[in-house]
Protein backbone atom coordinates (compact mmCIF):
# COMPACT_ATOMS: atom_id res chain seq x y z
CA UNK A 1 0.00 0.00 0.00
CA UNK A 2 1.34 3.42 -0.85
CA UNK A 3 1.36 6.48 1.39
CA UNK A 4 3.87 8.93 2.75
CA UNK A 5 7.40 7.56 2.84
CA UNK A 6 7.95 6.00 6.23
CA UNK A 7 10.73 7.34 8.45
CA UNK A 8 13.67 5.15 9.39
CA UNK A 9 13.80 3.60 12.85
CA UNK A 10 15.78 6.48 14.35
CA UNK A 11 13.48 9.16 12.97
CA UNK A 12 10.50 7.15 14.13
CA UNK A 13 12.04 6.85 17.60
CA UNK A 14 12.50 10.63 17.75
CA UNK A 15 8.96 11.26 16.56
CA UNK A 16 7.48 8.86 19.10
CA UNK A 17 9.55 10.40 21.91
CA UNK A 18 8.41 13.88 20.88
CA UNK A 19 4.80 12.79 20.69
CA UNK A 20 5.06 11.11 24.08
CA UNK A 21 6.29 14.43 25.47
CA UNK A 22 3.09 16.05 24.26
CA UNK A 23 3.92 17.28 20.76
CA UNK A 24 0.71 17.01 18.70
CA UNK A 25 2.54 17.68 15.43
CA UNK A 26 4.79 14.66 15.95
CA UNK A 27 1.74 12.55 16.76
CA UNK A 28 -0.06 13.79 13.66
CA UNK A 29 2.96 12.94 11.53
CA UNK A 30 3.08 9.43 12.96
CA UNK A 31 -0.57 8.91 12.12
CA UNK A 32 -0.14 10.02 8.53
CA UNK A 33 2.10 6.99 7.98
CA UNK A 34 -0.53 4.59 9.30
CA UNK A 35 -3.92 6.19 8.66
CA UNK A 36 -4.55 4.50 5.32
CA UNK A 37 -3.80 1.03 6.62
CA UNK A 38 -5.83 1.62 9.78
CA UNK A 39 -8.85 2.85 7.82
CA UNK A 40 -8.58 -0.17 5.55
CA UNK A 41 -8.43 -2.49 8.52
CA UNK A 42 -11.43 -0.85 10.23
CA UNK A 43 -13.40 -0.91 6.97
CA UNK A 44 -12.66 -4.61 6.62
CA UNK A 45 -13.69 -5.37 10.19
CA UNK A 46 -16.88 -3.31 10.32
CA UNK A 47 -19.87 -3.87 8.17
CA UNK A 48 -21.74 -0.58 8.18
CA UNK A 49 -20.34 2.22 6.00
CA UNK A 50 -19.46 5.18 8.18
CA UNK A 51 -18.66 3.06 11.22
CA UNK A 52 -15.01 2.86 10.22
CA UNK A 53 -14.78 6.65 10.25
CA UNK A 54 -16.15 6.83 13.81
CA UNK A 55 -13.97 3.98 15.00
CA UNK A 56 -10.87 5.45 13.41
CA UNK A 57 -11.39 8.66 15.38
CA UNK A 58 -11.62 6.60 18.55
CA UNK A 59 -8.43 4.79 17.57
CA UNK A 60 -6.53 8.06 17.18
CA UNK A 61 -7.77 9.43 20.49
CA UNK A 62 -6.99 6.20 22.31
CA UNK A 63 -3.52 6.16 20.77
CA UNK A 64 -2.88 9.74 21.91
CA UNK A 65 -4.07 9.05 25.44
CA UNK A 66 -2.17 5.76 25.75
CA UNK A 67 0.97 6.82 23.95
CA UNK A 68 3.00 6.64 27.14
CA UNK A 69 2.38 2.86 27.21
CA UNK A 70 4.24 2.36 23.93
CA UNK A 71 7.72 1.37 25.03
CA UNK A 72 9.24 0.25 21.74
CA UNK A 73 8.81 2.72 18.86
CA UNK A 74 9.51 -0.05 16.36
CA UNK A 75 6.30 -1.74 17.57
CA UNK A 76 4.23 1.36 16.75
CA UNK A 77 2.47 -0.24 13.77
CA UNK A 78 1.36 -3.38 15.59
CA UNK A 79 0.44 -1.26 18.63
CA UNK A 80 -1.87 0.91 16.52
CA UNK A 81 -3.44 -2.11 14.84
CA UNK A 82 -4.02 -3.67 18.26
CA UNK A 83 -5.88 -0.55 19.36
CA UNK A 84 -7.87 -0.56 16.12
CA UNK A 85 -8.76 -4.20 16.61
CA UNK A 86 -10.01 -3.59 20.16
CA UNK A 87 -12.04 -0.56 19.08
CA UNK A 88 -13.58 -2.54 16.22
CA UNK A 89 -14.49 -5.43 18.50
CA UNK A 90 -16.01 -3.02 21.05
CA UNK A 91 -17.97 -1.37 18.29
CA UNK A 92 -19.28 -4.67 16.95
CA UNK A 93 -20.28 -5.77 20.45
CA UNK A 94 -22.16 -2.56 21.17
CA UNK A 95 -23.94 -2.51 17.86
CA UNK A 96 -27.40 -4.00 17.73
CA UNK A 97 -27.27 -6.74 15.14
CA UNK A 98 -29.27 -5.92 12.07
CA UNK A 99 -29.91 -8.44 9.41
CA UNK A 100 -27.64 -7.91 6.40
CA UNK A 101 -26.76 -4.44 7.70
CA UNK A 102 -25.04 -2.95 4.82
CA UNK A 103 -25.94 -5.13 2.04
CA UNK A 104 -29.47 -3.92 1.58
CA UNK A 105 -32.24 -6.35 0.94
CA UNK A 106 -30.12 -9.07 -0.62
CA UNK A 107 -29.88 -12.18 1.43
CA UNK A 108 -26.72 -14.14 1.95
CA UNK A 109 -28.26 -16.95 -0.06
CA UNK A 110 -28.98 -14.45 -2.77
CA UNK A 111 -25.38 -13.34 -2.79
CA UNK A 112 -24.17 -16.86 -3.15
CA UNK A 113 -26.67 -17.58 -5.88
CA UNK A 114 -25.69 -14.42 -7.74
CA UNK A 115 -22.08 -15.39 -7.42
CA UNK A 116 -22.76 -18.92 -8.56
CA UNK A 117 -24.68 -17.61 -11.57
CA UNK A 118 -21.44 -16.15 -12.85
CA UNK A 119 -19.72 -19.48 -12.92
CA UNK A 120 -20.06 -19.75 -16.68
CA UNK A 121 -18.67 -16.27 -17.31
CA UNK A 122 -15.09 -15.41 -18.04
CA UNK A 123 -14.72 -11.97 -16.43
CA UNK A 124 -12.01 -9.94 -18.11
CA UNK A 125 -13.00 -6.30 -18.05
CA UNK A 126 -12.15 -3.86 -15.28
CA UNK A 127 -15.78 -3.77 -14.32
CA UNK A 128 -15.70 -7.50 -13.82
CA UNK A 129 -12.47 -7.28 -11.88
CA UNK A 130 -14.08 -4.70 -9.62
CA UNK A 131 -17.10 -6.92 -9.27
CA UNK A 132 -14.85 -9.81 -8.24
CA UNK A 133 -13.23 -7.58 -5.64
CA UNK A 134 -16.62 -6.43 -4.42
CA UNK A 135 -17.64 -10.06 -4.05
CA UNK A 136 -14.44 -10.80 -2.19
CA UNK A 137 -15.03 -7.93 0.24
CA UNK A 138 -18.51 -9.24 0.92
CA UNK A 139 -17.26 -12.78 1.47
CA UNK A 140 -14.57 -11.46 3.81
CA UNK A 141 -17.21 -9.61 5.83
CA UNK A 142 -19.08 -12.86 6.18
CA UNK A 143 -16.13 -14.73 7.67
CA UNK A 144 -16.03 -15.20 11.44
CA UNK A 145 -14.43 -12.06 12.90
CA UNK A 146 -11.33 -13.87 14.16
CA UNK A 147 -10.63 -15.36 10.73
CA UNK A 148 -11.48 -12.09 8.99
CA UNK A 149 -9.01 -9.98 10.95
CA UNK A 150 -6.16 -12.46 10.49
CA UNK A 151 -6.79 -12.90 6.77
CA UNK A 152 -7.05 -9.15 6.14
CA UNK A 153 -3.89 -8.38 8.12
CA UNK A 154 -1.97 -11.05 6.21
CA UNK A 155 -3.25 -10.71 2.68
CA UNK A 156 -4.26 -7.06 2.43
CA UNK A 157 -1.82 -5.48 4.89
CA UNK A 158 1.08 -7.84 4.20
CA UNK A 159 1.86 -8.24 7.90
CA UNK A 160 3.93 -11.17 9.10
CA UNK A 161 2.48 -14.03 11.11
CA UNK A 162 4.50 -12.76 14.10
CA UNK A 163 3.02 -9.25 13.84
CA UNK A 164 -0.50 -10.60 13.47
CA UNK A 165 0.09 -12.86 16.43
CA UNK A 166 1.11 -9.80 18.47
CA UNK A 167 -1.93 -7.83 17.32
CA UNK A 168 -4.54 -10.50 18.03
CA UNK A 169 -2.72 -11.89 21.09
CA UNK A 170 -2.86 -15.47 19.84
CA UNK A 171 -0.06 -17.96 19.09
CA UNK A 172 1.32 -17.99 15.58
CA UNK A 173 -0.06 -21.49 15.01
CA UNK A 174 -3.57 -20.24 15.78
CA UNK A 175 -3.11 -17.33 13.39
CA UNK A 176 -1.90 -19.67 10.65
CA UNK A 177 -4.90 -21.92 11.18
CA UNK A 178 -7.37 -19.03 11.01
CA UNK A 179 -5.81 -17.66 7.83
CA UNK A 180 -5.83 -21.09 6.29
CA UNK A 181 -9.50 -21.68 7.11
CA UNK A 182 -10.40 -18.21 5.81
CA UNK A 183 -8.49 -18.85 2.59
CA UNK A 184 -10.18 -22.17 2.05
CA UNK A 185 -13.62 -20.59 2.51
CA UNK A 186 -12.83 -17.60 0.33
CA UNK A 187 -11.26 -19.68 -2.44
CA UNK A 188 -14.37 -21.81 -2.53
CA UNK A 189 -16.65 -18.79 -2.72
CA UNK A 190 -14.52 -17.09 -5.36
CA UNK A 191 -14.45 -20.21 -7.51
CA UNK A 192 -17.17 -18.91 -9.88
CA UNK A 193 -14.74 -16.17 -10.95
CA UNK A 194 -12.40 -18.76 -12.44
Amino acid sequence: MSGPEKPDQQQLGNLVARAQSGDPRAFEKILTYHQRGLLRFCTSMLVVPGDAEDVLQEVYLTAWRQLSTLHAPEALGTWLYRIARHRCIDHLRKRTPQPRDLQGPESLAGDIAASDDRSGENPESNAETNAAMTDLRRFVHELPANQRECWVLKEIHDLSYADISAIVSEPIATVRGRISRARTTLAERMRPWK
Binding site: M1, R36, L39, R40, T43, P49, A52, E53, T129, N130, A132, M133, D135, L136, R137, E155, I156, D158, R183, L186, A187, M190, R191, P192, W193, K194
Partner: peptide
Protein backbone atom coordinates in the same frame (compact mmCIF):
# COMPACT_ATOMS: atom_id res chain seq x y z
CA UNK B 1 -6.56 -22.93 -10.57
CA UNK B 2 -8.77 -23.04 -7.48
CA UNK B 3 -6.82 -20.33 -5.65
CA UNK B 4 -6.23 -18.03 -8.64
CA UNK B 5 -9.52 -16.04 -8.52
CA UNK B 6 -9.05 -15.33 -4.83
CA UNK B 7 -5.42 -14.33 -5.31
CA UNK B 8 -6.29 -12.00 -8.16
CA UNK B 9 -9.13 -10.26 -6.31
CA UNK B 10 -7.00 -9.97 -3.15
CA UNK B 11 -4.23 -8.36 -5.18
CA UNK B 12 -6.71 -5.87 -6.65
CA UNK B 13 -7.95 -5.06 -3.18
CA UNK B 14 -4.42 -4.65 -1.82
CA UNK B 15 -3.26 -2.31 -4.56
CA UNK B 16 -6.52 -0.44 -5.10
CA UNK B 17 -7.85 2.70 -3.45
CA UNK B 18 -10.70 2.52 -0.99
CA UNK B 19 -13.46 5.07 -1.57
CA UNK B 20 -13.30 5.94 2.11
CA UNK B 21 -9.74 7.21 1.75
Amino acid sequence: RRLAPLAQAAQEWKTGTDPEE
